[in-house]
Design a protein around this nucleic acid. Structure first.
Lengths: 115, 115
DNA sequence: AAAATGTGCAACTTTTTAGTTGCATTTCGG
DNA sequence: CCGAAATGCAACTAAAAAGTTGCACATTTT
């Protein structure tokens, strides 16, 4: 039987969701998914918080593997890493699927009872 | 053109991810997606934290519409609400899709340059 | 009615997180 | 070489989050 939620995936997924669970960070991810690597200064432009705050957020995202930073000359560029995002998506898919299956089973039980 | 990430979805999605971004809460969601409503005591059983802590977590999940609680006799039962989970999943889908499109465009540019 | 079960509410402690300011360091352009 | 631009690092503040304890209240069960 597929679709069982094991403890390992749960432990791995929670920090990813936590990283995405901040408005500022989700905004960073949204901008970086444009594809082109952006510098900290670029990412800070138009933000209500300071450059240092943005830097911290980027490190949080990097900590769970959602983004990746590299140096180019005097600026630090950041880009999205697709893999971890996929893991989070897969996890939600699993929960959704399991939920749907559960509803089907309940439906079957109800139909059996009322028949 | 579809797939653009607007600010509203971003603002709505962040709190949902934040709610999922806690090990204990993600565990609750995982258990509730079994389909059958469970009481606080049942959900607390086997957890390292107290019943009151579990209650707080359930209210956090309810705050973003991920779960729904109702009273039955002396016990309070909780069940999963599918809709918000779907919204989170859709949001990750959007980011993934936009990312894939961005990669395609970059690929096209590179091929154009090296030709 | 009395004991047991299941919750709710409130105050309090401890940790984590978001954000700031200030200053040092590195790199680019003229 | 010098000033401007882009970051990095560290200390500190403030607010939010996670968890606890203690006790009151409602509903069963015997």
């Amino acid at each position: 039987m597929l679709g069982q939620l094991n403890s390992a995936e749960l432990t791995n997924s929670a920090p990813i969701f936590a990283a995405l669970g901040d408005r500022t960070r989700l905004q960073l991810v949204a901008r970086l998914c444009g594809g082109e690597p952006l510098s900290i200064t670029q990412l800070s432009a138009g933000s209500p918080v300071t450059r240092q705050a943005i830097t911290k957020h980027l490190h949080v995202l990097a900590g769970v593997g959602l983004v990746h930073g590299f140096r180019q000359g005097r600026e630090q560029l950041w880009e999205l890493k697709h893999e971890q995002l996929e893991q989070a998506r897969r996890y939600l898919d699993q929960i959704s699927r399991q939920w749907d299956e559960a509803l089907s089973r309940l439906q079957a039980v109800i139909e059996g009872e009322t028949r």
